[in-house]
Design a protein around this nucleic acid. Structure first.
Lengths: 91, 91
DNA sequence: GTTGGCGATGTCGATCTTGATCATCGGCGG
DNA sequence: CCGCCGATGATCAAGATCGACATCGCCAAC
């Protein structure tokens, strides 16, 4: 499923041009990105939670050299599935 | 940031009632949930990717009993931040 | 059709997950 | 707008998983 599919679903419920639907999807992802980049936690009950977390790891591995490489970054985004998404069955 | 904030952002760009904005947000999250529950990968370039993954782990620990607890589940939802979200700086 | 983000690969260690319970807060009815 | 209901967070431990690096192919986005 890609952006177009989401926009498509939106168009079915709220009649509008594909361009508009795409803009809506884009706007929302943009807002989410912005919020996360500002360190805000995004919580949607029943769906999940996006949370910026500090990265404490400090080591990685370079495939070619095989040498330990430092992981300079200190943050990552974690998504915690909500109740509804945890209902996933093994299929 | 919670659902209302997202709806609020949407209202600013696409004038509509709060109820409508909330419905839109709800609809989209609903579609995403549905797609993930069906095992579909959701990819939004520049934002991130939601991917249902099989869980192979099989053990955990119960605080109270202190006993090893089986982790029967076999799936989880993983979110991989896209390029834009990986640009997070330590702040 | 073109551009460029994303997946996969291999290694090693830190991180995450799972379960139960109470408190807190999001969601929603009155 | 206030209040209730129910979902989420934290906690403990053990073990599996993820992440970063570099590069090429593939597919999303335009």
């Amino acid at each position: 499923m890609i952006k177009i599919d989401i926009a498509n679903a939106l168009m079915k419920v709220y009649p509008c041009s594909r361009a508009t639907a795409l803009q809506v999807v884009d706007l929302l992802t943009e807002r989410l990105k912005d919020a996360l980049l500002n360190g805000h936690r995004i919580e949607i009950r029943g769906f999940g939670v996006f949370e910026p977390r500090p990265r404490k790891r400090g080591m990685g591995r370079n495939i070619k050299t095989g040498a330990s490489v430092q992981i300079p970054k200190g943050k990552s985004i974690r998504f915690k599935p909500g109740k509804d998404l945890r209902a996933i069955e093994v299929k």
